[in-house]
């Protein structure tokens, strides 16, 4: 597979390691009253869709960026690649 790195251009997926669903960015609020359930669902449950999937890849043999890759799990077609950091910022994780 080839991942089109938003900063560095197309790179072979062999340079990357894979983590999983990009929802792993959404770490729950540990102070929330239902934090135990929140963390359980956050860490363990997955949509695991057959189709479009937003997922985290780490450019280990490269610039060490975490990317959010939108990839179809049936065809492997990649439609979007973003810096995970930008996604996290957009989700308000800098607060």
């Amino acid at each position: 597979m080839i991942i089109d790195h938003p900063l560095l251009g197309p790179r072979d997926a062999a340079e990357f390691t894979y983590l999983g669903d990009a929802t792993l960015i959404n770490r729950p609020d540990p102070a929330a009253p239902d934090a135990a359930d929140g963390f359980y669902e956050y860490l363990y449950l997955r949509d695991n869709p057959a189709g479009e999937h937003n997922e985290l890849w780490y450019h280990e043999q490269g610039d060490r960026a975490w990317l959010v890759v939108s990839r179809n799990t049936l065809t492997h077609e990649i439609t979007k690649v973003e810096l995970a950091r930008d996604v996290a910022l957009r989700l308000g994780r800098d607060r």
Binding site: T17, L19, L24, I25, R27, L56, Y58, E60, R64, A65, W66, L83, A84, R85, V87, A88, L89, R93, D94, R95
Partner: peptide, 14 residues
């Protein structure tokens, strides 16, 4: 290192 970068970029980008 990978997990620290994950925390840095994805969990605590601020």
């Amino acid at each position: 290192f990978q997990r620290l970068e994950f925390a840095r970029q994805c969990l605590f980008p601020g």
